[in-house]
């Protein structure tokens, strides 16, 4: 699910940036620091929309750097266990297929597909009675498991339920 979230980020600014364009530097630093990052708690930060507040800078003893706490609104993508999502198939192999839900990669193993799905190495694709899952196709799947790593989230999905599978 995509969210509009208010988050905060701490930036340490080098004294050479102090001056009339400080706000711009802070914005550029914020974009570079947070956009495209991913964590288990927050999810994927896709794009910063606007900055709601910048705290007064506090000069840190010893280093001379100034610390700013920036509050901003961002588009965030966070996947949940049990959520049904549409996905784009990116690769198909003998053990299952991979699909992308925005920034998230989901793996669907063959045992989590309906029993009539068979692997076909011409394509390659999976063929069921009235469905074909092949590269660049669209599928509707349910996320059944998530693995949170430091800078990555991996998901396992299923299409072995009613109303899931290829999107016609």
């Amino acid at each position: 699910m995509f969210f509009l979230r208010t988050l905060s980020h701490t930036i340490n600014l080098h004294p050479s940036y102090f001056g009339p364009h400080m706000r711009e530097f802070l914005m550029r630093n914020l974009h570079a620091d947070v956009e495209g990052t991913c964590s288990g708690r927050i999810g994927f930060i896709i794009s910063v929309l606007n900055i709601t507040n910048i705290s007064p800078g506090k000069v840190l003893p010893n280093s001379g750097l100034a610390e700013f706490i920036v509050q901003y609104q961002a588009i965030v993508f966070k996947p949940y266990k049990g959520e049904v999502v549409d996905a784009i198939v990116t690769s198909v192999n003998q053990i299952g297929f991979f699909a992308d839900v925005g920034p998230l990669q989901v793996f669907v193993a063959q045992k989590l597909m309906p029993n009539d799905f068979k692997f076909d190495s011409n394509g390659p694709c999976y063929r069921g009675d009235d469905q074909t899952i092949e590269k660049n196709g669209q599928v509707r799947l349910k996320i059944v498991g998530l693995k949170h790593q430091a800078t990555q989230i991996n998901a396992v999905g299923t299409i072995k339920e009613d109303y899931l599978g290829q999107i016609q």
Binding site: M1, F3, G36, I46, S47, I75, F77
Partner: peptide, 30 residues
């Protein structure tokens, strides 16, 4: 937090005309 549906995300991403080459961003746009 407010949830956004896919079309809203598309509109918001198109409104922020800022070059962004991160993989996360590109995959989301796609």
């Amino acid at each position: 937090s407010a949830c956004l549906f896919i079309s809203e995300v598309k509109i918001l991403l198109e409104a922020t005309q800022r070059p962004n080459t991160s993989e996360v961003y590109q995959k989301t746009v796609n």
